[in-house]
Write a protein that binds this DNA or RNA. Sequence first.
DNA 1: TGTAGATAGTTTACGCGTAAGATATCTGAC
DNA 2: GTCAGATATCTTACGCGTAAACTATCTACA
Lengths: 160, 160
Amino acid sequence: MSKNLLQNELKKKRPFDSMEQEALLNILRTNDQFQNRLGRLFREFYLTASQYNVLRILRGEGKPMPCQEIGERMVQVVPAMTGLLDRLEAQGHIRRERCTEDRRVVYIELTDSAKDLLRQLDAPVNELHHQLLGHLKPTELNQLSRLLEKARLSVQSKPP
Amino acid sequence: MSKNLLQNELKKKRPFDSMEQEALLNILRTNDQFQNRLGRLFREFYLTASQYNVLRILRGEGKPMPCQEIGERMVQVVPAMTGLLDRLEAQGHIRRERCTEDRRVVYIELTDSAKDLLRQLDAPVNELHHQLLGHLKPTELNQLSRLLEKARLSVQSKPP
DNA sequence: TGTAGATAGTTTACGCGTAAGATATCTGAC
DNA sequence: GTCAGATATCTTACGCGTAAACTATCTACA
């Protein structure tokens, strides 16, 4: 075929303006499709991808964390965290506790029910990862990760 | 360094469960950062990334298109299109026109002001693409696109 | 001491993604 | 011709990303 895969998917009539554009669109599209699949899995457990992300971060840390620190490990800006945590709290997955030394900071702690839920999700999540990317050879997965890491070098610092 | 780049960015304490997981997180994170930068550029022109996407699709087609067809070229589901188009219409960037043969379908047409806006955006957008990915060699860009295309092979069909 | 500026978190307003359901129109089987 | 089902669009409800403005608390420096 004369046109490549992404071009066909997007029914694009003309070739890409640049290889940078092609790669960028490939990243955005792949992300959308994968997020879609992940979202469907999480929804079965009444979670969103962001909520799952927060819970995973908390489990990884192993102890209560301030909201800001959680926000930093996601890409998001802080304000979004508030609502996200509100919903997780309402579902009984986290507890908030104000720090006694610095009363500005609020510590977030996983509840036991959240830990259970995460354990339940471990297998299906890994399985989905494998389903989505298991058809790539280890070399290819490694190449892909290295290329994406290199790609991100251009966006080091957030302007204020 | 013993830990890799992504692991450091995420302040992850333990290595990844699998290479699939690592690659997946790399995709999601790269996408987030790039979307962020793109969003900032579009915002200067009072557009969102989705709105720009719709306008680009319409320009590429060169003639009016039904909403559904626009939706198909984006990753999104149709319902989101309605609101998106409402806002573009309010800004004077598109016109809606009901088809006379099949009165269910609505054709969307670019206005002249939208075409002007797109022309204004062409240079800055290409420049940003280059800023984000220009540090990769052509071979690498090509590799990256091919790997992402291969990655997407696992999500061919949407379940009903 | 006391006051300015930094910092953590929240609130509000808006855009848009998802799902579920409603409405209008078209098509095909009878 | 009519009725069932498909199809195109819209509506509503909810989650969450972004920005901007606000509150409470802490810190530093005069």
